[in-house]
Every structure is written in structure tokens, then in C-alpha cells.
Design a protein around this nucleic acid. Sequence first.
DNA 1: AGCAAAGATGACCGCTGGGTCACCTTGACC
DNA 2: GGTCAAGGTGACCCAGCGGTCATCTTTGCT
Lengths: 209, 209
Amino acid sequence: MAATTGTTGPRADMVRNRRLLLDAATEAFAEQGLDASMGDIAQRAGLAKGTVFRHFPTKEDLLSAIMLRLLDRLAGSAGRLLDADDAAAALREFMADGVETLAADRAFCEVIGRPSLQQSEVRDAIADLCVAVEALTARARDQRVIRDDVTGTDIVLLLGGIHQTAAPLLDTQPQAWRRYLELALDGLRTTHPSRLPEAPPGRPEISTR
Amino acid sequence: MAATTGTTGPRADMVRNRRLLLDAATEAFAEQGLDASMGDIAQRAGLAKGTVFRHFPTKEDLLSAIMLRLLDRLAGSAGRLLDADDAAAALREFMADGVETLAADRAFCEVIGRPSLQQSEVRDAIADLCVAVEALTARARDQRVIRDDVTGTDIVLLLGGIHQTAAPLLDTQPQAWRRYLELALDGLRTTHPSRLPEAPPGRPEISTR
DNA sequence: AGCAAAGATGACCGCTGGGTCACCTTGACC
DNA sequence: GGTCAAGGTGACCCAGCGGTCATCTTTGCT
């Protein structure tokens, strides 16, 4: 049999370790936010600290890897919902998914809210997400089921806002975000549009790809 | 002349230093959030590190002092607006004030969103704020100018949410929060009420005074 | 002016966290 | 099974943090 690859591929245990690491980091960052330490992550993964840094030269790199994973998942979710019959329901479902994701991940929230913490790949991924969601939003707009002056970026930004609204209640009423999601949706409906001030935002940060 | 006070009052420079300290800390926490360091605060105030700790035994104490100041200011603002003629306008004005305050203060946001970081006095002050805002909200509710299923606590929570929504745009569109405030207000209006899920929240955290 | 006490000071401590590196282990190919 | 480079390891370094304390300075009273 011919060589599997021209250059010998990566070692088997390396791939395994990378997985362990990403999983551990996901957990740690979700629970402790940006304060999660590299040492703790190594321990969770059952690996040595040095190994973490071999895979990800800086903490920021590791964080980005995880953010990209999540953003991708959300963009995928948005894409899949494009096929749904009911545009309004699809949008609500996407938003529910998004808010729940945020509620479960502290680091994600912290990074989303502060572009200065994002490396360019993350910013690009957010921009991509905005594009995907804009498609979803456009459908709802065209069907006159939401007001015509909101964009995909508005929706993405609202995810963070809705979560933040309910965040202080997380301990006592973990489902409180549903209340504020519904409130936001009421604001998005088309019945009684008050003109929104401020230009609709472009992607949160323009990045030269 | 009789003694100025029974027990000799605090020294003059101490009061001055306390002021300097609070001002410096306000600035530092606003800019850098909870990551602001005691050393940096001392430097800003032009004092030695030890002095900071003489006035506030722990970082948490200093932080609380500042939070209390701000929460008080907001509660006062809410109280004053009770006299306004137009309940809807008063509510909008209060919310604008609140969101702007949040936008200007990183630490405030971080603490508001996480009750676990709040010492009991701060929780009490938040509860007080909710009460004050409930009065404002009740008027608007009674005048049928906002839906009848939102409470003062909802409004207070929304402040954080609205700010968070606009936070990623702070660099490029510092006024973007106005857009999302208007969106939220549209959701609060009475025209087309969809029933909100989840019980209306009590004060974010119940505290035994 | 002199004095005692309240207060200011900054060197110091212990600890944690990101990141490095010289050395050891292991997987993959012969 | 032997070989060797890719990869794993953890002791180590350093910076910055919250917090302490013996010591010096200032204030306000007499």
C-alpha cells in the first residue's frame, strides 16, 4: 500500500491529546471565564502544563480555538434553520439557541462583549455569523413578521444583551432569559414601529480578511 | 469655644485622602474593570499602597464603596423622575441615564451581572434601586403606557442587557445603545402584549437586611 | 513649641499565573 | 527490536497581585 501521506502525519496520541485539551479548556473557560488558568486546564485534561503550550503557544490562541468552534456551531445552526417553513419561529429558535449557549459559557460572553480581546480570526468568525444570521433575518423581514429596520448583526448583538439581562438571575431563575427573549421579540415585531435611532451596525468590527 | 466634637473628629488630611482615593478608584475601576489593581489606584491618587488598605481593608470593600455611590445616584435619579408629568418619558430618561452609566463603567457592569461578587450591602442597594424603579414603572403601567406584566426589577435588569447589546460597538458607535434602548421600549409598550414566560423576577437576590 | 496619637509610607511577603526549556518518553517506520 | 524525531514533561523563571507591618510624618491639642 502506498504511503498514507507524503509527509508523515501527526502522531496518534497528539490528536488524542489535542481533543482532551480542547474539551478540558471548553469546560474550564465555560465555568470560570477568562480567569481559567492554563494550569487548571492542563490538570483537567490529565496532561502537563508544557503540553498545553506545545499545542497552543499562548492562552489567547487556545481561547480563540474554542471560540471558533462555538461560533461555527452557531453559524451552522443559523444556516440549517434557513430551510424552516416559519421564518419567525426559525428566528426565535436560533435566538434561543444562541442565548442558551451564552448562558452556559462565561468566557464566550466576556469575549463577545469586548472586541479588543478578539484576535482577527475570531472577529472574522463573528462577521461570518452575522452574515448567516442576516439571511435568516432577511426572510423574516420579507415576510413582514419582524420590522424592516433590524439586521442580522442586530440579532447577534441581542443575544449577548438578552443573556446579560437574565444573568443576575442565573442562580435563582435559570430560565429567566426566556422572559427577556420574548420581550425582545415583541420589540422586533412589525406592528408599531418606532423609528430606531443610530445607523444599523455593520459587523461588530470590520476586518480585512 | 466649646469642643467641636465630643470625640475628636477624623484628621483633615484623612478626609482629603479618602476623597482622592475614591475618585482614583472610580476612574480605575471604570476603565479597567475588576482587574484594576490596588497599586494602580494608589498611584492615581498620589498615595502609597498602604494608605489604600488603611481606608479599605480589602479590595472588595473599596469596590463596594464605589458601587454604593453609583447605585445611590441611580436610585436618586429614579426618585426625582417620579415628579415628572409624562411617565413614559420619565422611564425612558431613567433608562437612558442607567445605560449610559453602565457604558462608562466596566467594573459596574461586571459586578451587576454576577451577584456572587456582591457583598450584602451592594445587594441591598440594588434591591433599593429596584424598589425605586418599581415606583417609576408602576406609574407608567397605570397610565397604560407600558404593558402591565413588567416590574421595576425587569427594568433594572434591562439596563445591563441594553448596554451589553451595544457593548461590542462601543469603539465604533458609542451611541449605539440608543438604538437598543428604543427597541426595548418598543417591546415594553402596551399595544400587542405576548404573554411573557417565567415569573417576574423578585429583586435579583433576596437579602436579609 | 512640644507632644502623643492618628495616619502615611513603601519595603516586604506569599501566592498565583503565563510562559520556557533541557530532558525524557513514545509512536511510527525500517 | 532498533532508531530517532516528534512530542510530552514538570521544574523553573519572572512579573504582578492583594495584603502586612515596622517605621516615619503629620495633625491637632495644650
